[in-house]
Write a protein that binds this DNA or RNA. Structure first.
Lengths: 140, 140
DNA sequence: TATAGAGTGAGAATCACTATCGATAACAGG
DNA sequence: CCTGTTATCGATAGTGATTCTCACTCTATA
C-alpha cells in the first residue's frame, strides 16, 4: 500500500462534491484536536461559510461510517470528531486543550481478542481511549 | 434470607437510608448486565415500587461518584450502569443481551501508563471496554 | 442543456438527562 | 413517642445534543 492518489477532500464514490461537504472537511482539517459537531457548525458560521446543523451531522456521520474520521465521546456524552490517519488506532487526548496523539498497540489488540475468545465471545471489538494532561498544559 | 447483608445497601456516610435508594440498589443487584437509568426506572415501576426518574438518576450518579457502580456509554451515548466488584477493571459486554464479564489486565494498565509517559502526558487514565457477542447469543 | 435524484437546511421532534422547588420522610435530641 | 431540622423525593419544566421531515437546490451526467 503506497500513498493513495485520493485527495483529502474528494468525496467517497457515490458522494457528490458539495460546498458544504468541503466546508466540514476543511474545518476538521483545520482543527488541532477533537471538535464537536456543534463547534464545527459554529466555526463555519463564524468563518462566513455557514452550513446547516443537519448537514454538519450528516456529513460527519457519513465520514465516520466510511472511516474517514474518528469519534469519541467526552464525559458529557457529546460526540467529538477528528480527521485521522487511516487504519485502526487509538488516541491519547489532553483533557485540558483537546490536543490528541494517535497511538497504537498490537499488544492491546491481541489482549482484546484473547479476552473475547477466553470468554466465548465472538465479533469482539473494543473502545480504548487514553486521557491525560499534555506537557504544554501541565505547566499551568 | 438469614443475616441481611446490609453492607450492600448501606448508604454512604451522610446519606439517608431511603426506600428509593434501596429500590435502585436492588434493581442493580438483580440485573445480570448493564442497565440504563431508563430501564431501571421502568423495572421499578413494573415491580410496583415506583421511584421518580430524577431520583433514579440522582442515586445512580451518587453511586457512580462513590465508585459503587461502573458506568459505560453504549453506541447511542446512553449511560449504562452496573453494580461491580470494587477495584479497577474493565468489561466485556455482549451487544445482544447486555451480559457483562469483568476483565482486568496489568498489561493494558502498563501500556496506558507507558504511552502517557512516552508522549509527555501526566495524570493519564483510560477508558477501555470490550464488546462482542456472547456464546449464548451467538447461536441465534 | 436538460434532468434525475442526491444533497441541503430551517424547524420540529426526540431523547437522555438536569434543574426547580414545594412536599415528604429520616433521624437525632428531648 | 414527639418534634424540629434537613436530606431526600418527585412531578414537571427545562436543556442540549442529535435526528427527522420535506420542499427546494445543485451536482453529475447523458
Amino acid at each position: 500500500m503506497t500513498t493513495p492518489p485520493r485527495e483529502m477532500t474528494r468525496p467517497a464514490p457515490g458522494r457528490r462534491d458539495t460546498r458544504q461537504r468541503r466546508a466540514v472537511l476543511g474545518a476538521l482539517e483545520r482543527a488541532t484536536g477533537f471538535a464537536s459537531a456543534q463547534a464545527i457548525h459554529a466555526r463555519l458560521r463564524a468563518a462566513g461559510t455557514p452550513v446547516g446543523m443537519a448537514t454538519v451531522y450528516r456529513v460527519l456521520r457519513d465520514l465516520a461510517d466510511t472511516g474517514q474520521v474518528d469519534v469519541v465521546r467526552d464525559d458529557a456524552g457529546e460526540q467529538q470528531f477528528r480527521r485521522c490517519t487511516p487504519g485502526h488506532h487509538h488516541h491519547l487526548v489532553c483533557v485540558a486543550c483537546g490536543r490528541a496523539v494517535e497511538v497504537e498497540s498490537v499488544a492491546v489488540e491481541r489482549w482484546a481478542e484473547e479476552m473475547g475468545r477466553a470468554n466465548g465471545f465472538t465479533d469482539v471489538h473494543h473502545d480504548v481511549e487514553l486521557f491525560g494532561t499534555c506537557s504544554r498544559c501541565a505547566g499551568a
